[in-house]
Computed example of a mutant assay.
Amino acid sequence: MVEALRKIDWYRLRGHNGYADELPRLLKQARTSVEPHEELVGVLTGEESEVSEATAAAWPFLLELVAHDNTPSREWLLENLCGAIAVAGGSGADGVHPSWPPAFEASKPALLALLDHSSAGVRRGVLFVLGKGRGDSALVLPALTRRWDEETDPATRLCLVLVVTEFAGRGDEAAVSWLRELDVPDGEPLARLLVSAATRPDADVILRGLTGDLELFLATGSFEMGYDEVLEHVLWLVGPKDFEGMDLVLALVDVLPWRTEALDYLRRLFERDTTDVGLVVPFVPVWAADPDVRLRAFAVWLVGVARAREYTDLVAAAVHDHAVTSLGQRVSALAESVLLELR
């Protein structure tokens, strides 16, 4: 490392808090001490969508630190520094320096070699970096296939599937094929869930959400993560603008254990952007007449957000609905407020 560090003119490279002339010292110190870790984070990470030229230059040295068994707290470095850099680099934002993508691609052989590390924590950290860093999956997928056949740690096996869903969620058809061909034992329900969430059985395109097997999704929801965490991940796959996934959310509205989460998702979605609210407005009459107060309250709220004046009479009728939601919100009070907005 020492000789390779000398070959780089760090005085000409900018980090996130100025020039990177201190980086060689910090990287060398990190081989034997945790003291420079926080300072390395300050120099090498900025906003979540920024990667500096100094960070791209330092990347191979960070991986060398992580690979060395004597590096103190290397799992911390992998998670809190390398992971943060990979997330920023994979954002595709303007703040990512042009030197980052080739630096990350060049590092993939070193990253993939760490998949054979004896520490499951290191293997999982590397998988996170591979998934978040984007780039070409050509080298990654064969290595993950081999690792899948050899891996015995359940959490790491799940991470293997998560990495491929990251690639698949960006439209990588090779990743979609990998998931479809993956043989997942019945005893790994979360892995089966994510495979189903990331693939469509009826098309050759990726859908960020589950349309393939809702039954599997619901059956898996009570597994160790808890259905709220499972739903959070799948709705992340759906994404705020991938409205093909709206079928999933609307299906979950009909399933009692998932109803609150699905309605919360719709509320957050349309609070941000009402452009496509018309996709769900036709459900207002059905929801407004439902015995479940959550649906009645949501229907009234939706009329207000969508300015759907054709349903003013339904809102006026809800003024006499004195039921209270789990949040302590009276349907009648909400209806009165929406009526004022519609006038």
Rank of each mutant, 00 (worst) to 15 (best):
H320F: 09
L26H: 08
L114D: 11
D9N: 14
P24S: 07
W287I: 09
L237Y: 06
V324Q: 06
S337T: 13
A103I: 12
W10C: 02
G83S: 08
E105I: 14
A203K: 10
L63P: 06
D204P: 00
K7G: 05
Y11G: 13
T275I: 10
T71D: 07
R31D: 01
L340D: 11
A306N: 12
V122K: 01
E181C: 03
H37L: 11
D172I: 11
V195R: 15
T152L: 03
D116M: 05
G95A: 07
G239E: 08
G278F: 12
Q329M: 06
R157G: 00
T220C: 14
M246D: 11
R25Y: 04
G169W: 06
H320A: 15
P201R: 13
V253I: 14
A219K: 15
S137F: 10
S52N: 12
R307F: 12
V338E: 03
D276W: 14
V87A: 11
S91W: 04
T55C: 13
A289M: 03
E244V: 09
D276L: 13
F223H: 15
D247Y: 05
P60G: 10
V238R: 15
V43Q: 03
L114Q: 15
D21W: 05
A308R: 09
G90W: 10
L139Y: 04
L112V: 14
Q329T: 15
E341H: 10
L218R: 15
E35Q: 11
G131C: 07
G133N: 14
P142A: 06
V140A: 08
G42D: 11
H16C: 04
L162P: 00
T260A: 14
V96K: 12
V331F: 03
M1R: 11
C82N: 02
S326M: 03
A198Y: 06
V300W: 02
R14M: 07
S73K: 13
E150R: 15
Y11I: 00
G89K: 05
E35S: 02
F223R: 05
G187E: 15
H68C: 12
A93P: 07
V305A: 09
H233I: 14
E229H: 06
K241Q: 12
L5Q: 00
P257M: 10
K108C: 04
D254E: 15
V51D: 05
L237V: 01
V122L: 10
A168T: 11
E48N: 05
D116P: 04
S118E: 13
G131T: 07
E50D: 14
L342C: 07
E229A: 15
R123L: 08
G95N: 05
G15Q: 01
D276P: 00
V238C: 08
V303I: 08
A175S: 15
L214K: 03
R180H: 10
P257T: 08
L78E: 01
T325P: 09
A106F: 08
E75V: 10
M1L: 13
L266C: 04
F243V: 02
